[in-house]
Every structure is written in structure tokens, then in C-alpha cells.
Simulated scan of single mutants.
Amino acid sequence: MSAGATTAEDPAHGLAVAVLVPCHNEEVAIASVVAGFRAALPRATIYVYDNNSRDNTAAAARAAGAVVRTEPLQGKGNVVRRMFADIEADIYVLVDGDDTYDPAAAPAMVRLLVENQLDMVTGARVTEIEAAYRPGHRFGNRVLTGIVGWIFGKRVSDMLSGYRVFSRRFVKSFPALAGGFETETEFTVHALELRMPIGELPTAYKERPPGSVSKLRTWQDGLRILRTILVLVKEERPLPFFSLAGAVLLAAGVGLFVPVLLEYLATGLVPRLPTAVLSTGLVLLSFLSFACGLILDTVTHGRREAKRMAYLAIPAPAPRSGQSTPTPAGR
């Protein structure tokens, strides 16, 4: 078979591909996930990271042919941080271990990343099965994705998808600070802030297999993600964040001061001295907030430059020439 034909069939020809599967109590589903990705990406090395499972997740993954490792710190974000630090590859496919994502979509996602030299491809979930993607989760995803899009740029339609393909330079420049499911929000904001080339493909999404239980907590995880968005806005957009806080404080201070001023103009007296002092304090705090925003904006600009330089220090994904055998991931 010619090199061109091989490359056409294998979008990652000559590149080391690692499939990363964080798992917690996925004994029922993990074997199917591993088998699916072994069929879809036969050259890839599949890593399953067991996150304190109380069932036989690790044994089932090992029997299916995956490389099994453990991460004792609970939470998906902690597992992602460990995987990104430990595993060496050219292309990383990240997927949940609950058998809800379609492994057959992986080659197309990898091809899109390689051929267009992208840094992240998101599998946007498409399904008509209400049990797989409940209306509440769908609505929450739209709201949270809309907030991030409004603040950081509308380039992703499914911010909370757990199915991603990354380049090496994304993975090795990603700080991975989150501890739980909010790590998907970090992926998106990191890519948008550094203006990375990214893509998205619609992928089939199905319900969990019988006997598998979701770990998502709708309200708790939604609030954690919203909190993460607010923290990221503070850190990545400090001038608008503190300017808004300053404007609220200034409006409150002026609102309290107006009645005091009108009474003083009418009577020449200031009987509500505590209100006058409070309004003065609020106005001073508003100016302090504006000043903090200006200073932190300069600091953030420097941090963004440093992250950009770290990102540029890693080569873009590109197929290697020749027929050489890909270097196994993790070696």
C-alpha cells in the first residue's frame, strides 16, 4: 500500500495518539469504550485512569486491552491534570468512560485537527434521546456556553462536552487548575484566551448502558461551573470585572448621597451623618476597584504573553513524512 493511501486511511499516520479515559465506577461501560476506540484508532494507546473506583473498573479496562493507571485525588479535573502531565503523545483524545460518546467519530475529529493544524476539536453532542441528554442539562449547557461565548468569544457551541481531541501544544501549555467537571470550562477559556485554532464536529450521543450510574449533580456541578466562569472572568478579564464592581459601588454611593445633599441644600444641615460617611466610603471603594482593574489588567497581559510563548514553544501538529512506525504514546 502506498504512503498516500495509508495516510488517507489513518489521519494520524506517523503520529503518536493517546486516548485518555478518566473513570470512576465505570465497570459496566469501560470495556465497551476501550473496544470501541481500539477499533476506531487501532494505532492509538488507550489509557484508563481509575479515580478511586469501588468496583472492578480497573480490571475490566485492563482485560479490554487498556493501559490502566490510578489517580487518588478525587475529581475529573485532578485526573486530567495527571494525565496531561504523565502522558507523552502528539495527539490526545479525551473521552468519558461512560460509553455515551461515539468512538467512530474519533478518526474524523483527529483528521480535522491534523489537516487544519488545530489545537482542539470538540465533539458537539447530537441526540434525540431525552434520557441521554436531559432538557435541564441541555438548557444549562446552553446558558453556560452562552455566558462564556459572550465574554470570551462565540466559537464553541457545546462547552461542556467531554469528548475532545487536543494537540500536544494545547496539552502541555494547559495549566489544569480545576478539580472537577469544571475542567471542560477551563479547556474552552484557555483556547479562546490564547486565540488557538479550534474546531468542532457534531457527534452522536447516547444514554448510559443499563447498570451504569451518572456522577453528575445537576445543581451542584452547575453552580461550580458558574463559579469557575466568574473566577476565570476575574483572572482573564480583570478590567471589565473590577470596572463593573466599581460602577455598582459608585452607583450605590451616589444613590445614598443624593438625599443627604438635597437635605443639606434645603436646610444647611447634615442630620444623617452616618449615611454621608457610608456614601463617601462606597465612592472611595469604587475608585479603588477601578484602580485594581487597571493594575491587574497589566498583570494579566503579561501572563497571557507568557502562556502564549509557552504554547508557541511546542510545534504544531503535523504528519511526519515517510513510513516510519509511530512512537508508542507514553514512551
Rank of each mutant, 00 (worst) to 15 (best):
P209G: 11
P210D: 15
P210N: 08
P210A: 13
G211F: 13
V213D: 10
S214M: 10
R217S: 13
T218H: 10
W219P: 00
Q220H: 10
D221G: 06
D221T: 11
D221H: 14
D221M: 06
L223G: 05
I225F: 03
V231E: 02
V231H: 09
E235C: 00
E235T: 13
E236V: 02
P238F: 12
L239T: 11
L239C: 02
F241V: 03
S243M: 01
S243F: 02
L244T: 08
L244D: 03
L244F: 15
L244V: 05
A245R: 14
A245G: 01
G246V: 05
A247V: 01
A247T: 06
V248E: 03
A251E: 02
A251Q: 04
A252T: 09
G253T: 04
G253R: 09
V254D: 06
V254Q: 00
G255I: 00
G255W: 02
L256W: 15
F257M: 15
F257H: 14
P259L: 00
V260L: 10
V260M: 07
L261I: 07
L261F: 13
L262C: 11
L262Q: 10
L262V: 14
L262M: 08
E263Y: 05
L265I: 10
A266R: 15
G268E: 12
G268T: 09
G268M: 15
V270K: 09
V270A: 03
L273E: 06
L273F: 03
T275G: 00
A276Q: 09
L278Y: 00
S279V: 01
S279E: 09
T280I: 11
T280L: 15
G281L: 12
G281S: 12
L282Y: 14
L282V: 05
V283M: 08
V283Y: 04
V283I: 14
L284G: 12
L284P: 12
L285M: 13
L285F: 13
F287K: 04
F287H: 11
L288D: 01
S289K: 10
S289I: 09
S289A: 15
F290P: 01
A291N: 08
C292I: 02
C292R: 14
G293R: 00
